[in-house]
Amino acid sequence: MKTEEVLAIFREAGAILEGHFILTSGLRSAVFLQKARVFMHADKTERLCKALAAKIRQAVATPDYVVGPAVGGLIPAYETSRHLGVPAIWVERENGVFRLRRFEIEPGARVVIVEDIVTTGLSIRETIECMKGLGVEVIAAACIIDRSAGKSDVGVPLIALAEYEVPAYPADQVPPELAKIPPVKPGSRNI
């Protein structure tokens, strides 16, 4: 699946929003990818995650598990794991730190972290830290869309179904035309 096909699915779902957004990373952007509008459609989610699973298979060996960072990575991790034929587990924040709370995983297990959208890669890096603390080998990370177009270093190979570079700015460096629009924060962190 090519980037334009992925973006077409997001457009069909009304998931490419324009305005002034505070991203989960804290950066500001004129574009927000509201993946929840895509993930509410099982057929669209299945198409994206089946293609992501195929891309993962081409890049690395099949993992023992797929790990998703909660909340945004839950649905794509589950659906991608279904196409890879391996279990999906997830990490969730406990006192601001990702922990594997609901599952056990054996040391030495090989995992791929699956995320929805990558901007800075922070959630993936935090998930890697959690997995390494459990003695787990992270062989790669994957996402539906990489907003950084390959610029985010997550510490392991990043497999992106699509790269869609959208400018994002620190709050004190927002362009004047964007600063005129009141910001909204539609992301899931800190909820």
Results as ranks from 00 to 15, higher is better:
residue 174 V to Q: 03
residue 27 L to Q: 10
residue 105 I to R: 07
residue 100 L to E: 07
residue 170 P to Y: 09
residue 31 V to L: 06
residue 9 I to P: 02
residue 157 P to H: 08
residue 170 P to Q: 10
residue 178 L to M: 13
residue 24 T to W: 00
residue 51 A to Q: 03
residue 109 A to M: 04
residue 63 P to A: 09
residue 9 I to T: 11
residue 124 I to W: 03
residue 180 K to I: 06
residue 146 D to V: 06
residue 14 G to K: 01
residue 130 C to V: 12
residue 103 F to M: 06
residue 72 G to L: 10
residue 147 R to S: 01
residue 82 R to N: 11
residue 64 D to S: 13
residue 38 V to Q: 13
residue 12 E to Y: 00
residue 133 G to A: 08
residue 169 Y to N: 07
residue 15 A to K: 04
residue 158 L to Y: 04
residue 124 I to E: 06
residue 82 R to K: 15
residue 42 A to E: 13
residue 12 E to C: 00
residue 44 K to E: 06
residue 13 A to D: 07
residue 45 T to Y: 05
residue 47 R to M: 11
residue 7 L to C: 08
residue 88 A to N: 09
residue 106 E to Y: 04
residue 54 A to D: 15
residue 124 I to N: 03
residue 138 V to K: 05
residue 63 P to V: 10
residue 32 F to N: 04
residue 28 R to D: 10
residue 125 R to C: 07
residue 154 V to T: 09
residue 40 M to E: 15
residue 53 A to P: 09
residue 9 I to K: 04
residue 6 V to D: 10
residue 135 G to N: 09
residue 27 L to Y: 12
residue 75 I to D: 12
residue 75 I to H: 06
residue 157 P to Y: 02
residue 129 E to T: 14
residue 71 V to Q: 08
residue 14 G to P: 01
residue 110 R to E: 13
residue 86 V to Q: 09
residue 75 I to F: 06
residue 94 E to K: 14
residue 74 L to A: 13
residue 184 V to P: 01
residue 73 G to R: 05
residue 183 P to G: 07
residue 13 A to C: 15
residue 87 P to K: 11
residue 101 R to A: 13
residue 107 P to M: 04
residue 20 H to R: 06
residue 115 E to M: 10
residue 42 A to G: 07
residue 87 P to E: 12
residue 99 R to P: 02
residue 51 A to F: 01
residue 56 I to D: 05
residue 4 E to T: 14
